[in-house]
Measured scan of single mutants.
Amino acid sequence: IQLFSRPDFLGDHFSFEDDQAALPASFRPQSCRVHGGSWILFDETNFEGDQHILSEGEFPTLTAMGCLASTVLGSLQK
């Protein structure tokens, strides 16, 4: 999965292949690309809070990911 700090796959980005119990504190994903398989994104660290399940594809905004525009993602799980 690739996470981007701005909508439309712009800004800083991080790529992950494994579960992340905590995303970098200063990084707030605003768009993402899922390459193969599914990922669960969580509103809180340690895989807690609301879950957003994404299958392979491109998600140019938080709302395209099924999140509110104000959502701050905290962790993710493959």
Score class of each variant (00 low, 15 high):
19 D>E: 07
5 S>W: 01
2 Q>A: 08
59 F>M: 00
39 W>G: 04
43 D>F: 04
36 G>A: 11
34 V>T: 08
49 G>V: 04
10 L>Y: 10
36 G>N: 09
58 E>D: 12
9 F>C: 03
11 G>W: 03
76 L>R: 01
41 L>D: 00
45 T>K: 14
29 P>Q: 01
24 P>N: 03
48 E>H: 12
16 F>K: 00
5 S>C: 00
2 Q>S: 13
4 F>W: 09
10 L>N: 13
30 Q>S: 06
62 L>W: 03
15 S>K: 12
78 K>G: 05
66 G>V: 03
65 M>V: 06
73 L>G: 09
67 C>T: 01
41 L>P: 00
25 A>S: 13
9 F>W: 00
25 A>Y: 10
3 L>W: 00
61 T>P: 05
32 C>A: 14
13 H>K: 12
51 Q>D: 08
11 G>Y: 02
12 D>Y: 11
11 G>R: 02
74 G>F: 07
56 E>C: 10
73 L>W: 14
49 G>F: 00
74 G>N: 15
73 L>Y: 06
45 T>A: 15
1 I>N: 06
33 R>F: 00
38 S>G: 08
41 L>T: 02
24 P>T: 01
9 F>G: 02
60 P>S: 08
12 D>H: 10
7 P>Q: 10
59 F>N: 08
28 R>M: 11
62 L>R: 08
60 P>T: 00
28 R>I: 14
62 L>P: 09
23 L>Y: 01
50 D>T: 14
51 Q>T: 11
65 M>W: 08
66 G>I: 03
43 D>A: 14
64 A>T: 11
40 I>K: 01
26 S>R: 12
68 L>C: 15
26 S>V: 08
73 L>V: 15
28 R>T: 14
13 H>V: 15
64 A>E: 11
26 S>F: 13
52 H>T: 11
6 R>Y: 08
21 A>D: 09
17 E>V: 13
27 F>C: 06
55 S>E: 15
78 K>R: 15
20 Q>W: 03
23 L>S: 04
10 L>M: 15
56 E>N: 07
26 S>C: 11
33 R>P: 02
23 L>Q: 02
57 G>F: 04
7 P>F: 04
58 E>H: 07
70 S>Y: 07
24 P>V: 03
40 I>F: 03
30 Q>F: 00
39 W>K: 01
34 V>D: 02
49 G>M: 02
36 G>Q: 11
39 W>E: 00
62 L>S: 06
36 G>D: 06
64 A>H: 12
64 A>W: 01
43 D>G: 13
59 F>E: 01
22 A>G: 07
38 S>T: 15
25 A>E: 13
64 A>V: 04
63 T>P: 11
56 E>A: 10
33 R>L: 10
36 G>L: 08
11 G>T: 04
77 Q>R: 14
17 E>G: 08
73 L>C: 10
25 A>T: 11
56 E>G: 05
69 A>N: 15
56 E>K: 14
32 C>T: 04
21 A>I: 11
61 T>M: 00
26 S>E: 15
28 R>S: 11
13 H>F: 14
16 F>H: 01
29 P>C: 11
27 F>Q: 02
30 Q>R: 10
23 L>M: 10
9 F>V: 03
39 W>C: 04
54 L>Q: 05
7 P>K: 10
37 G>V: 03
38 S>Y: 08
56 E>T: 10
29 P>G: 04
60 P>A: 04
71 T>C: 11
29 P>S: 03
5 S>K: 01
14 F>M: 13
60 P>K: 05
40 I>L: 07
59 F>R: 03
44 E>V: 04
71 T>Q: 10
34 V>C: 03
50 D>R: 14
48 E>A: 12
74 G>W: 02
38 S>H: 12
63 T>Y: 11
55 S>T: 15
58 E>P: 01
63 T>N: 11
65 M>L: 07
58 E>L: 02
43 D>Q: 10
3 L>G: 00
69 A>C: 10
15 S>V: 14
35 H>C: 09
25 A>H: 13
41 L>Q: 00
40 I>V: 13
51 Q>A: 13
8 D>A: 08
3 L>R: 04
26 S>A: 14
46 N>W: 03
5 S>A: 10
72 V>R: 14
19 D>R: 01
60 P>L: 06
34 V>H: 05
18 D>W: 05
3 L>K: 00
2 Q>F: 06
55 S>Y: 09
16 F>M: 01
25 A>D: 13
70 S>P: 10
30 Q>M: 15
13 H>L: 08
24 P>M: 07
4 F>Y: 13
63 T>W: 07
54 L>S: 03
52 H>P: 05
10 L>V: 10
73 L>N: 07
16 F>Q: 04
37 G>L: 01
33 R>Q: 08
66 G>P: 00
45 T>F: 08
72 V>D: 12
24 P>S: 04
21 A>Y: 07
50 D>Y: 08
67 C>S: 04
42 F>V: 03
30 Q>G: 04
63 T>E: 15
72 V>C: 14
38 S>L: 10
25 A>I: 11
50 D>G: 14
70 S>H: 12
23 L>E: 00
6 R>P: 03
13 H>D: 12
40 I>W: 02
10 L>D: 11
67 C>D: 03
63 T>G: 13
25 A>N: 09
78 K>E: 06
74 G>M: 14
6 R>D: 14
2 Q>I: 10
14 F>D: 04
3 L>A: 04
73 L>I: 15
2 Q>K: 08
6 R>F: 08
59 F>K: 06
35 H>S: 12
44 E>Q: 13
78 K>V: 11
27 F>A: 00
58 E>M: 04
62 L>T: 06
13 H>R: 12
6 R>W: 06
61 T>H: 08
21 A>G: 08
17 E>F: 10
20 Q>V: 14
8 D>R: 09
68 L>R: 15
47 F>H: 01
23 L>H: 02
76 L>N: 00
37 G>E: 06
41 L>A: 07
52 H>N: 06
31 S>H: 07
24 P>G: 03
28 R>Q: 12
57 G>N: 07
21 A>S: 12
60 P>D: 04
70 S>M: 04
43 D>L: 07
51 Q>K: 13
55 S>C: 10
61 T>E: 07
73 L>F: 14
51 Q>M: 11
32 C>K: 00
10 L>C: 13
26 S>L: 11
53 I>H: 12
14 F>Q: 09
15 S>M: 14
47 F>R: 03
25 A>C: 10
44 E>A: 12
45 T>N: 11
43 D>T: 15
59 F>T: 00
38 S>E: 15
34 V>A: 03
